[in-house]
């Protein structure tokens, strides 16, 4: 039987680099990523291997997929798994990075941010609306609005934090190369 275990992600928007390094350490011990799992990765036990990992975000049409993956394999990056618009690759330690220039690297985080930005904004608008409803109504209506407010608030805060973390990443890359 195959040995399988789960590794939790630190949240890609917050700690992509840490996640990739953690995965490398796991591979050195023989645990290799097989697929993305809910908020983490599924690892499978096999032979020990020294590999580095990289992740890319891109929405791909079915007819774009083959070409996209071929670019990576031509550069020595093996495709590990994909989930929605996330694609994970691995390569031998000295392989050149998948992003070689600043502009396209910033766009990576831009694409990553698009989905979460929309979600955070929608949630924020909804939270504010519920807040006002709970102020200007009375009775059952108010109670329902209040409870919903806190229910939504729990999701709004992490969504905004994630969106901010992505902005921070973009800003960091811009600043680093401006020196």
């Amino acid at each position: 039987m195959k040995k399988i275990k789960y590794m939790m992600s630190g949240g890609l928007a917050f700690s992509e680099q840490q996640d990739m390094e953690k995965l490398r350490k796991k591979s050195l011990k023989g645990w290799h990523v097989k697929d993305f799992k809910f908020m983490g990765y599924g690892l499978e036990y096999g032979e020990k291997e020294d590999v580095i990992y990289s992740i890319d975000y891109r929405f791909l049409d079915e007819n774009e997929r083959e070409e996209y993956l071929d670019f990576f394999s031509a550069a020595g990056w093996r495709h590990v798994c994909s989930e929605a618009d996330m694609h994970l690759f691995k390569a031998a330690p000295n392989t050149a990075p998948i992003y070689s220039d600043k502009d396209s690297k910033i766009e990576k985080h831009h694409r990553q941010g698009k989905v979460i930005n929309g979600m955070a904004l929608g949630l924020l608008a909804f939270t504010i609306a519920l807040f006002f409803v709970s102020i200007f109504t009375t009775g059952t209506f108010q109670t329902v609005a209040k409870i919903s407010f806190f229910g939504v608030f729990v999701f709004t805060v992490p969504a905004i934090m994630t969106a901010m973390a992505i902005y921070y990443q973009k800003w960091k890359i811009k600043l680093k190369d401006a020196k």
Partner: peptide, 21 residues
Amino acid sequence: MNLIEETTKGTVSIGPASMYT
């Protein structure tokens, strides 16, 4: 990718994700 690497004697290489973008 090959043409760029050959003409620059390997000093310039464009990563696959950058290339695709």
